[in-house]
Nucleic acid binder design. Structure first.
Length: 312
DNA sequence: CTCCGGCAAC
DNA sequence: GTTGCCGGAG
């Protein structure tokens, strides 16, 4: 038993003990994480509302709206009894985006009351019958409310799988990979944990060390320095990016006093790889110009290692 | 005629 | 993300 989690087509490989990887993430999550109110309830209705709201609004903004919504319509029965116009009004009044979501939510509540006799469905299959609830949301509710769902695969999870284990940029591959990682019977905590990882440590701009990422020892991106990801925007035009990166070099050097060239590279661009297309060669060119402009200077640290710092 | 992949709209 | 619509598929 190698502990590898590999697809039958061998497109990716988890070069580590799967159990250790799982344990590391869960411990990291349980030790500390953002406290969103919907993480403290297992009411499927409340979970559904949070999921629908989250599909179009930033989590921070969703908190207030979610609490007010549930305060006004605490149950599916009460929401179903409400006037459609009031629900839609609430939606727009809280800048929650497309009104259709409000309409769907109201319709779903009505379905639960009339077709399910008020009993909230629990399986992904039944949940998908609800208006506005597709595969993703159905699984999320099953997972967070009933702890019996599969892996939730959103952009955060894809990014993490892509960077950490080199899972190819393919929806099917992401889905199977995410499910290989999921500890059976623990979808609630696991999905929360891996999404938290993608949210605070492995966002478009990685914060591996700052966030104390629990997967650094196995992460391919952390090892290579290439933090490219499916959802990371393509670089701006050449000249535009050059100006932008010059700014980042200065800002970064002001913060760190002195830095080794490659370390600086990783700090200013997520896709920095010493040998890559825009790697050390590119960075040295950028630094040379900055040196000519009298903005930075090359130096040696206490151990004689070459470093770059702001020109005094 | 039902099912599925691709797309646009919300 | 989900729905709605369309063309190709079986």
């Amino acid at each position: 038993m190698t502990g590898d989690a590999e697809e039958t087509d061998g497109t990716w490989d988890l070069h580590a003990d799967l159990e250790s990887v799982r344990r590391a993430l869960i411990e990291w999550y349980e030790d500390d994480h953002r406290e969103f109110p919907w993480r403290r309830t297992d009411d499927p209705y409340a979970i559904l509302v949070s999921e629908v709201m989250s599909q179009q609004t930033q989590l921070g903004r969703v908190v207030e709206a979610w609490e007010e919504f549930l305060e006004r319509w605490p149950t599916t029965a009460e929401l179903a009894a409400a006037d459609r116009a009031d629900v839609v009004g609430f939606w727009t009044g809280h800048s929650l985006g497309y009104n259709n979501r409000a309409k769907y939510l109201h319709e779903a509540a009505t379905q639960i009351e009339t077709e399910y006799d008020g009993e909230f469905p629990e399986t992904p299959g039944e949940l998908e019958e609800l208006m506005g609830v597709g595969p993703y949301t159905a699984n999320a509710v099953a997972s967070f409310a009933f702890n019996q769902g599969d892996a939730v695969v959103d952009t955060n999870v894809k990014r993490v799988c892509y960077r950490a284990f080199g899972v190819p940029d393919d929806d099917s591959a992401f889905e199977s990979a995410a499910n290989e990682l999921l500890p059976a019977g623990h979808s609630r905590v696991w999905n929360n944990a891996i999404m938290e990882l993608g949210g605070v440590a492995c966002g478009q701009t990685p914060r591996c060390d700052e966030a104390g990422c629990p997967w650094r020892e196995w992460c391919q991106a952390y090892a290579s320095g290439d933090f490219t990801a499916p959802d990371v925007p393509t670089q701006p035009s050449f000249e535009g990016s050059r100006r932008q990166f010059r700014g980042r070099v200065i800002a970064t050097l002001r913060e760190y006093d002195e830095l080794e060239v490659d370390t600086l590279g990783h700090r200013i661009r997520v896709d920095y790889a010493p040998d890559g297309e825009d790697g050390r060669e590119w960075l040295e060119g950028l630094l040379a110009d900055l040196e000519d402009d009298g903005l930075v200077a090359f130096d040696s640290d206490d151990d004689g290692e070459p470093v770059v710092r702001l020109k005094r």
